[in-house]
Amino acid sequence: MEISPDAWVLYEWQGLRLNATIVFTWGVMALLVLVSWIITARLSEGETVSRWQVMLEVVVTTIRDQIDEVGAADPARYLPFIGTLFLFIATANLLTILPGYQPPTGSLSTTAALAICVLIAVPLFSITRRGLGGYLKSYLQPSPFMLPFNLISELSRTIALAVRLYGNVMSGTVIVGILISVAPFFFPILMQLLGLLTGLIQAYIFAVLAMVYIASASRAQRKTDPAADTETPRTSREGD
């Protein structure tokens, strides 16, 4: 039994292997883009709004509200990144109800890629806000002795992010696989339902954690701003 869809190679050409992870990722991407495109092609700015547009607006607004709740100053800045993380992971996980589908998030390569994206995005957002010097200085906070610990923390949370998502999704798939071989009639369905739930929760956790990291990186800057002293993050979630 395959644990990771990475091993499921669909096409190979001159050493480049096109595995199921990439293919399903493309599928998920295509689905997301198509749905968005179809709906937003007929956007209405007036009073009468189609229910599909309302659905998209609700999704976008909810993500924006969540970003805002974490404490980021400008939700619109982070919306594409955080929103895409959530939508991609959620879609990838929810599609597990389709037979024959292997969630790309069940592959450590995918989750590692996403975690690396977060790892890069955190300093990027921070640098664009406070400049390179300000960002680098944050590693020396509260004292220069903390530099190695700060670095370790940065790395470890990235790895944790990747492994958490991978482990949850993969375990769901594996559990279903095992249950199918043990009790193939009733339990796999329950586990599948549970998998849908955990998949959605994982997407939420991943996106919110990414946002928390980004926000905490820019929060150090806000602490230097006396006007924003009272502003503290309303949520600070860690772990699963």
């Binding site: 990475d6 991407m29 495109w37 956007l43 390569s109």
Partner: peptide, 29 residues
Amino acid sequence: QIDWLTVAAQIVNFLVLIWLLQRFLYRPI
């Protein structure tokens, strides 16, 4: 097991998805 090629591809995929969604979803909405 991490397939670094896949990782790279997924990073690209993800960035492309960000761009596409920004183009077709977030901005219009």
